[in-house]
Design a protein around this nucleic acid. Structure first.
Lengths: 225, 225, 225, 225
DNA sequence: TATGAATGAGAATTCATTCAT
DNA sequence: GATGAATGAATTCTCATTCAT
């Protein structure tokens, strides 16, 4: 998993860069293991010792990097959502139209099911748990996700291509609902979907979201934009 | 709660109808308690003893009606989804157009957040868990839900009001995703939404799903269909 | 151990006397086991599972009767000190002179080392721990012990047999210190002391406390009071 | 704290005296930290890492100087009791009468509560633990303490000022019990006692121990001997 | 020597489930 | 059927101790 490879690579000169690096690497190994194990078994069925052994560390080591099991969930979530948000933000470029950006966004979201299956599964299943039952956790990274999506929609509304009478935040939420649910079906399927299958799903979702379900809507005319 | 009142009413001639009835009532009390407790704390944080005390029965009694805690979750889910599916099916009437039926469907789904808040919360949060982690559980009632929704869409496609090029099953899934996510936000909000608020959300969802996000689509012209 | 035999014997009529009784018996068995195990190994080296197996119950059962291990220590202490205080109070009778009562008190204290060796060891070693390190624990039963002893001394001062210029509370504390320390040596000795040995020690302590270390003091004249 | 300064100062010719000295200093820092931390939290609640950080060394360093946590307790105890015994022995001078020496002894013991509060607390609370539960530990330094005290008493008996009919070893033990218990109350009090308060307590203890509790004893006549 | 990250054995506690009443 | 006390397997987390650097 390439998730965190490119972060903090410029750890600078002072201190003990090697030590820093080692610490960071181990943390990352634990996070990757957590994504995998939580995805496979769900947070509550997953044992800390499974995460540890998947990460190749001792049980106790987990607790050098995370306060407790809940904290491990939160941190894993934050870290991975952060990474996802960064990828999504990178995918949104000024030069493209809002519509193109939106389409790209949807496709990228769904592609997680291929390129980072564990992560997709983890997000898909644990997001609600973490939001709802882990005490005192304001899910800022997910809010950030929604903001990124909403801002693309708002851009579209400003450009006049997206209808202005739908609340952008609600639309973002709804769109996330669609993507999340579709990704869930992809992820629950026994076998890994191919990139083409994802593309087909993406195209249909696009059609639906942009053109709506009603017959005779313009979007139908330009499926391949 | 009238949820399961009409099942098993035809207990036949044999045995003691009163005893049957009593048995049925106690089972129902446990189910209602399970919905409440699971909604409040989540399945894994909920204790069997909490469900028991909420139901006003002894811990051991739970096991006279359900095999184990997992089974209680499944049964609760099946029972309540069954009830929801029945309500939704009742709401779909031949005399109305497919479009009207679809709109009605969406509204009914969201109204759960007002009329059966615990249930809404329960479905919203536990559905994924139960589908994914409870071993060997084919979630037939949820599939049924999707079938009901898909059949309405297919009717619409046959009537020519809904676009034929989108897979009805995918559309059903996507629509469920939207409704579920919107209901989640309603349900996580501190205070109970009013019926008007639900109506507003329903209208926006309708706009979005039927008319699509693109500007200039026909659905906008007829918001009050 | 006869410690709690005679308490609550009249459990009254209402409720479920048998259930009450059973509950009380099991609690008592756990307390007795705790005294034994804590005496043998000390609180911190003792395992809850050792107490459980000594009591002949499952580990989890302990937690039906006590909040946690700390609570078990406190409750054990309270219960046993209560019993000791009751015995001591019974031993103080109006008809006897304060001096006789005081002598009797000292002897009874030391006799614990014979008649309830585990208890003696427990008190001797754990009292300080519980007072000092168990958070928020006001050691009321020990204060009660000191009050009983102080009241005997005050009686003696009022009767004119004990010197009035020593603070009774300090004297009680000091006397406890002597008795506790002497009991500690008795209890640490490999073999169980006989009642005669206790009597000898009691006589010496009496001499020392009443007559003082100085030569030529009156107490010497009446060693056998 | 000058506690162990004068030991090993004659490290002879071989090796590097400076290194010896350095080693000795670090050991002393750890001992001082142990006294402080054990006094504050008790041996079993104290973490080795807390001692290390209090001493300003790494956790692992502790194990270069002590075999394990138990050994640290024993060594701390031995070292500090050694120091106390030295101070007490210095305070006993041939020129003074046994009575004066005894009074001085008591006062010095209690003054620990002012001049070395952590140490007083440590001794008061941990002595019993270490005697009783640390395997195979013959508490020689404490026996030495008792011997010092007993020898003063024996001198008194020989001089004819102390009554001969009380076993000196038992008297020493009893006297320690009083001093230890009184020191415990001083040390548990929220605020540090003043030297005057100590003197008052010492005077009362003296009265009690020398004159006894009985009224009309000679010691009353000469409180200020 | 000194460090402190890593280890992993060990312990308290929880809670689904059973079963004697 | 109903009860709820008792069970004990299972799990999280701690912390003394080690050892590569």
């Amino acid at each position: 998993m390439s998730v965190a490879e490119d972060r903090e690579e410029a750890s600078g000169g002072e201190g003990t860069p090697t030590r820093e690096r080692a610490r960071h690497d181990k943390r990352e190994r634990i996070l990757a293991a957590a994504v995998k194990v939580f995805a496979e078994r769900g947070f509550y069925n997953a044992k800390v010792s499974q995460v540890a052994s998947e990460a190749g560390v001792a049980d106790g080591t987990i607790y050098l990097y995370f306060k407790n099991k809940d904290d491990l969930l939160i941190e894993t979530f934050e870290d991975r959502m952060q990474w996802i948000n960064e990828r999504l933000r990178e995918g949104i470029v000024e030069e493209r139209s809002a519509l193109e950006n939106l389409r790209h966004f949807m496709r990228m979201h769904l592609l997680l099911a291929v390129h980072a299956r564990d992560l997709a599964e983890f997000i898909t299943v644990e997001l609600r748990q973490s939001s709802k039952f882990v005490k005192e956790y304001k899910n800022t990274k997910f809010i950030e996700y929604l903001n990124i999506l909403a801002s693309v929609i708002i851009r579209g509304q400003e450009e006049g291509v997206l209808r202005p009478d739908i609340d952008a935040r609600l639309a973002a939420r709804a769109l996330f609902g669609v993507l999340d649910e579709v990704m869930l079906t992809l992820v629950l399927a026994r076998k890994q979907p191919t990139e083409e299958q994802i593309d087909q799903h993406a195209a249909q979702v696009e059609q639906l979201i942009l053109g709506g379900l009603l017959a005779g809507n313009p979007a139908q005319a330009a499926p391949g934009v």
